[in-house]
Every structure is written in structure tokens, then in C-alpha cells.
Simulated scan of single mutants.
Amino acid sequence: MKKQLTKSRDKIVAGVFGGIADYFGLDKAWVRILGAALIIFTGFFPGVLLYIVAAIVMPDAPTRSNTMDGHYRKKD
């Protein structure tokens, strides 16, 4: 299966930083801290604008529902 950049289901705001962490195999906490620092130190506007654009452009992570037998399957 091809690896795809998607928003994380483990969201704080929109799941962008969590999705980036999942994609690159990094710790979500560190990616969120680094992302927040970049937003703060770039003067808020450019960082917040890029975050909003990423939240709009990045697809949601595929959802899974728990079945009676304990296995997971994709929701249609």
C-alpha cells in the first residue's frame, strides 16, 4: 500500500502536525512543538495561513469501524 500524507485522527486542532508526524515516523509531540514554535516565531500570520491551507488540502485519514469479531474494516 502506498504511503499517503493525511491528517491524523489523533487531532489537537485539525490533525495537520499529527499527520506529518505519522507520515515521517516522528513523535507527534515534537512535531507539534516545532510547528507551534515556527508559527510563533514567523509572526503568526504566515504560519497560521500555511496551517489553514494544509488543513484544507490534506485529506482526512481513512476511518475504521470496529466489527463484532474485533477486527477492523474500512468504512464505506
Rank of each mutant, 00 (worst) to 15 (best):
G19F: 00
P62R: 02
V53K: 05
A36F: 05
I56V: 10
Y51L: 07
V53Y: 04
G47H: 04
K75P: 09
G35R: 01
K3D: 14
S65K: 15
I12D: 05
I52M: 09
A37I: 14
G70W: 03
F44V: 10
V48L: 15
G35A: 10
L5W: 01
L5V: 05
A61G: 06
D22I: 07
A29W: 08
L34Q: 06
G47S: 08
V31R: 02
I39Q: 01
R73D: 10
R64A: 12
Y51Q: 03
I12L: 10
P46D: 06
A21L: 05
L34R: 04
A29G: 14
I12M: 11
M1N: 13
D10C: 15
Q4P: 12
H71E: 11
A36L: 08
W30D: 06
M1P: 10
K3Q: 12
A55M: 09
L34D: 03
G43Q: 09
R73V: 08
K7M: 00
Y23K: 09
K28L: 12
D22V: 07
F17N: 00
T67W: 13
D10G: 05
A36K: 07
G19N: 00
G18C: 06
D22N: 10
L5C: 02
G19D: 00
L49G: 12
Q4F: 08
G19E: 01
V57E: 02
K3C: 07
K3R: 14
F41D: 05
A36P: 01
D60L: 09
R64T: 12
G43A: 07
T42L: 10
A14L: 09
F41L: 13
F24R: 09
I40F: 08
L49K: 12
P46K: 07
V31Y: 01
Y72F: 15
T6D: 00
G35S: 03
V13E: 14
D60I: 05
I33N: 10
R73A: 10
K28V: 03
D69H: 14
I20L: 09
W30M: 15
D22E: 10
G35H: 01
L34K: 06
D10T: 13
I40C: 11
A55V: 03
I12A: 11
D10K: 15
L49R: 11
M58Y: 02
L5M: 09
Q4S: 11
V48P: 12
G18D: 02
Y51R: 01
R64Q: 15
T6S: 08
I40L: 11
P62K: 08
D69F: 11
G25Q: 09
R73E: 08
G18K: 00
I20P: 00
Q4G: 05
F44E: 10
V13T: 08
S8D: 04
L5K: 00
F41E: 06
K28C: 13
K28P: 00
I33Y: 15
V31F: 03
L38M: 13
K74L: 12
V57N: 04
F41G: 09
